[in-house]
Write a protein that binds this DNA or RNA. Structure first.
Length: 619
RNA sequence: GGGGUCGUAGUUCAGUUGGUUAGAACGCCGCCCUGUCACGGCGGAGGCCGCGAGUUCGAGUCUCGUCGACCCCGCCA
C-alpha cells in the first residue's frame, strides 16, 4: 500500500497516557496496530506502544476519507494518528483498559509502515507459542507487554544498582573483553589473533584479575556491570554469556562487603517494587550441608533434622541403617496423605548413584507401627505437624563399615561419608519439594529468602583427577588459623582424606530461594601466600611464572588487603520477574545449544577469513 | 558425553490396533455489518505430517539414523 512519510510530525502522548481528564484535547499518537475491529462503516483500531493501548475510532459518517484509508490497515502496521480525545459513552467504557474511559476520534492518519502477517501476534493476551518461534522472531516477541515489563525491570534494577554504588564511592570501570584466560575453571571462548598467528585472546569468564589489579592500582572501590563468557553446557539458569554485577574494594572485612551488597540489593528490589529484610542471615558452609544438604539452601522450606538420637543402636540395626553415619529427616509441610502409588514414585527421584549411597523411609505410618517410640521422638525433633511429609534418609548398613581405627584419617573418611548422606538427602529433599510444590505452595508468591553462606572449603576432591583442587579461584584467602593445615596438606594432595579438606576459605556465597546469586571472597594480598597456594595446587615455580608471573609481580608492589564479590544480574532479574528461564530476561538470549536462532549464529566463515587468521578447520 | 519430553496448516493442537481424500481452533483472504474491545455473520484458501533410510500390499502412526527446541545429570569455583 501507499505509505506516508513521518515528516515533522511529533507525537504528543504515548498510547498508555490518555485519561478522562484529557477529553477535548487534540493529540497525536504513534504506534503499532494491536488489533483491528471492523464493523463496516465503523472501524476500531487499538494502537499500541511501549506504554499501553488506546482505542482509535474511524467513523464513516464523521470522516469518510480516514475511514477509507484505514480499511486496508492490518495488525502490526505502524500508524501516526491525530485526533480528538473523547469521553466514551457510559456503556462503552472498558474497565479492563487503563485508557478505557476515553477513545480518540481520528482526524488524520499516516500509515508509516505495513507489516507482513506475523507468525504470532504480540497483542494476543496469552501468546502460547513455541519458544523456538519466539526466539526466531525475537523482535516480534519483544513487542509483547510481558517482555517490555521484563526489559524495563532489568533497566530499573541496573540503574538503581549503579546509583547506589556510585553514591557509596564506587567507580564504574570497564575492563578488557579480549584478554588472556583467567583461572575460573570453565572453558574459554577464544578469539584468534590475526597479527599473532596461532595465538588467541580469551573472552573473560569474569574480570577477576583486572579488578584485583584495580585495587593494586589504588582505585579503592570498583564496580562494573560486566559481561562474562563461559563455554559450558547450559541450563535454564545458565547462558553462555551473562552479566555480573562485579565489585571489589580495598581494606574490607567480610562485613563491609555484605553491607554493600545488601545495600544495592535493597535499592534494586525497591526499584522493582519489593521490600526485603536486612541484614541477611548467615550460615557457615558446614552447617548448610548438615541442615540442607547443599551449599545453596532454599530457606522457604524447613531444614533437615538429624534424628539419629531418636533411635537405639538395636533399632537402627533392625532398620538396616549404618549407625556410624547421620540419620536425617526431611520435612515438607502441608503435603497431606500420600497414596501408595505416589510413594512408589519416590524411588524414581533418585539416580543410580544416589540409590547406592542412601536409603529412605517414606512410609512414616508404617514406621510408627513398628517403632512407635522413636517415631514419636522423630516427630518431636523435627517439629512436625499434622499433614507434614516426613522422610527419613540414612546410609544403608552394608556390613563393610566395621569398627575402624579412630585416627584422624578415619575420622575424615567418616566425615566424607556423612557429607555424602547429607548432600544426597539434600537433593532428595529438593526433588520432593519440587514434586509436591502445588501442595505446600512455598514456591509461589514473591517471598525472598536471602542467605549468606560463609566459610567455604578451600579445596575439593576431584574424583577424575584423583587429587585435591581449589574450590574457588586460587586468589581466595584462607582463614589464618588454617595456614598450618595447608603445610600438612600439600604433601597429601592425592589423599582423599588429606587435611586439605578441613581448610576453610574467607569466601562467601549469596543465596536467594535456593539459587546462587553470586560469590566472593577476601583475596590474598601477600605474594608469598599466593605463591604457596599455587604450590599447593601442584604448580611449580616455572608454571606459576608462566601463567601468573605478571600477577605475582604486581602483588609485590604494595598490594592493599582487598576483596569483593560478583552477583548474577540475569538471575536476580529472573527471580524478580518470576520467570523460570534466563531467556525471559535477556533481550537476545541463546538456546540450550548456545545458538542464536534469530541471527543464526554461530556460522562457518569464509576460507579467506580463516586464512587471514592462520586457522585450518579439521573436517 | 549421558538421560528424558517434544516436532502434523502461519500458530496452538487432535489424529484410534498401520488402512480410502490428514482434522479442529485461532490466524489469513473475500463479502456483509455503526459501539466493538478475544466484535459478530457467511464463504474460501492454506499440509515435504522436521529430514533420511528401513519394515509393510499400504507408514503421520512401527524400527533405525539424523537435525532442531526444551528440561535434567555430568560440566559450570
Amino acid at each position: 500500500m501507499q505509505l506516508d512519510f513521518l515528516g515533522d510530525l511529533q507525537r504528543t502522548h504515548r498510547c498508555g497516557d490518555l485519561r478522562a481528564s484529557d477529553a477535548g484535547a487534540t493529540i497525536t499518537l504513534m504506534g503499532w496496530v494491536n488489533r483491528r475491529r471492523d464493523h463496516g462503516n465503523l472501524i476500531f483500531i487499538d494502537l499500541r506502544d511501549r506504554s499501553g493501548i488506546t482505542q482509535i475510532v474511524f467513523d464513516m459518517e464523521r470522516n469518510p476519507e480516514m475511514h477509507a484509508r484505514v480499511e486496508a490497515v492490518r495488525n502490526e502496521y505502524v500508524l501516526a494518528v491525530t485526533g480528538k480525545v473523547e469521553l466514551r459513552d457510559e456503556n462503552t467504557i472498558n474497565p479492563k483498559m487503563e485508557t478505557g474511559e476515553i477513545e480518540v476520534i481520528a482526524t488524520d492518519l499516516k500509515v508509516l509502515n505495513e507489516s507482513k502477517v506475523p507468525p504470532f501476534f504480540p497483542g494476543d493476551a496469552n501468546v502460547n507459542v513455541n519458544e523456538e518461534v519466539r526466539l526466531k522472531y525475537r523482535y516480534l516477541d519483544l513487542r509483547r507487554p510481558e517482555m517490555h515489563a521484563c526489559v524495563e525491570m532489568r533497566h530499573r534494577v541496573t540503574l538503581a544498582i549503579r546509583n547506589y554504588l556510585a553514591n557509596q564511592g564506587f567507580y564504574e570501570i570497564e575492563t578488557p573483553m579480549m584478554t588472556r584466560s583467567t583461572p575460573e575453571g570453565a572453558r574459554d571462548y577464544l578469539v584468534p589473533s590475526r597479527v599473532h598467528p596461532g595465538e588467541f585472546y580469551a573472552l573473560p569468564q569474569s574480570p577477576q584479575i583486572f579488578k584485583q589489579l584495580l585495587m593494586i592500582g589504588g582505585l579503592d572501590r570498583y564496580f562494573q556491570i560486566a559481561r562474562c563468557f563461559r563455554d559450558e553446557d547450559l541450563r535454564a539458569d545458565r547462558q553462555p554469556e551473562f552479566t555480573q554485577i562485579d565489585l571489589e574494594l580495598c581494606f574490607p572485612t567480610e562485613e563491609t562487603i555484605h553491607q554493600v551488597v545488601e545495600g544495592f540489593l535493597d535499592a534494586a528490589f525497591t526499584a522493582a517494587g519489593y521490600t526485603i529484610k536486612r541484614p541477611f542471615p548467615q550460615m557457615p558452609y558446614d552447617e548448610a550441608i548438615r541442615l540442607y544438604g547443599i551449599d545453596k539452601p532454599d530457606l522457604r522450606l524447613p531444614a533437615m533434622t538429624d534424628v539419629k538420637p531418636a533411635f537405639s543402636a538395636e533399632e537402627l540395626d533392625m532398620l538396616a541403617i549404618d549407625a556410624s553415619l547421620p540419620v536425617v529427616a526431611i520435612r515438607i509441610p502441608n503435603v497431606g496423605e500420600l497414596s501408595r502409588k505416589e510413594r512408589d514414585e519416590h524411588k524414581a527421584l533418585l539416580n543410580e548413584k544416589q540409590a547406592k549411597v542412601i536409603k529412605f523411609i517414606d512410609d512414616f505410618k508404617r514406621l510408627e507401627k513398628g517403632f512407635a517410640e522413636p517415631a514419636a521422638k522423630v516427630r518431636e525433633l523435627c517439629g512436625a505437624e499434622e499433614g507434614d511429609l516426613l522422610v527419613l534418609v540414612a546410609a544403608p548398613k552394608d556390613g563393610i563399615t566395621e569398627a575402624t581405627p579412630d585416627d584422624a584419617a578415619a575420622k575424615r573418611r567418616r566425615q566424607r561419608q556423612a557429607y555424602a548422606v547429607y548432600t544426597n538427602a539434600g537433593q532428595f529433599r529438593l526433588a520432593l519439594a519440587q514434586r509436591y510444590a502445588n501442595r505446600h505452595k512455598a514456591f509461589e508468591g514473591k517471598e525472598f529468602k536471602f542467605l549468606w553462606v560463609t566459610n567455604f572449603p578451600s579445596f575439593e576432591w576431584d574424583e577424575q583427577m584423583r587429587q585435591w583442587t581449589f574450590a574457588h579461584h586460587p586468589f581466595t584467602s584462607l582463614h589464618e588459623q588454617h595456614m598450618e593445615l595447608l603445610h600438612d596438606g600439600v604433601s597429601a594432595l592425592r589423599d582423599p582424606n588429606s587435611a586439605l579438606g578441613a581448610i576453610r576459605a574467607r569466601a562467601y556465597d549469596l543465596v536467594l530461594n535456593g539459587t546462587e546469586l553470586g560469590s566472593g571472597s577476601i583475596r590474598i594480598h601477600q605474594q608469598d601466600v599466593q605463591a604457596k597456594i599455587f604450590e599447593a595446587l601442584g604448580m611449580d615455580e616455572a608454571e606459576q611464572k608462566l601463567r601468573f608471573g605478571f600477577f605475582l609481580e604486581a602483588l609485590q608492589y604494595g598490594t592493599p588487603p582487598h576483596g569483593g564479590i560478583a552477583l548474577g544480574l540475569d538471575r536476580i532479574v529472573m527471580i524478580l520477574a518470576g520467570a523460570s528461564s534466563l531467556r525471559e530476561v535477556i533481550a537476545f538470549p541463546k538456546t540450550a545449544a548456545a545458538t542464536d536462532l534469530m541471527m543464526e549464529a554461530p556460522t562457518p566463515v569464509t576460507d579467506a577469513q580463516l586464512k587471514e587468521l592462520s586457522i585450518a578447520i579439521k573436517r
